[in-house]
């Protein structure tokens, strides 16, 4: 049986959530309370620059990731 839920959800940092028409990456960052300049964003593994977030409308099934600074070697 086809997975009907995947057509109406997105994944934000690995967690499924309902897809809403017209929702942008910028809206999602704000909705999750993430600091605008404290995270970098990607959709389906492709970088979305900070100044592009308001123009990138997410689509059903999209995988949106935010990354933030950590210590590193």
């Amino acid at each position: 049986m086809a997975d009907t839920t995947s057509s109406v959800t997105i994944r934000f940092n690995g967690i499924p959530q309902p897809w809403l028409p017209g929702q942008t990456v910028e809206m999602l960052v704000e909705q999750h309370g993430l600091p605008e300049s404290g995270v970098a964003t990607a959709v389906n593994g492709a970088f979305v620059a900070r100044n592009e977030r308001r123009r990138v409308v997410v689509q059903p099934g999209d995988d949106i990731a935010t990354l933030h600074a950590i210590v590193g070697g």
């Binding site: 934000f12 600091p35 404290g38 995270v39 590193g72």
Partner: peptide, 18 residues
């Protein structure tokens, strides 16, 4: 050197509190 990590769901506190 410094790194990046995928944020956890509801990870705003983690980002702000590092």
């Amino acid at each position: 050197t410094i790194g990046l990590k995928r944020s956890l769901a509801g990870g705003a506190a983690d980002i702000g509190g590092n």
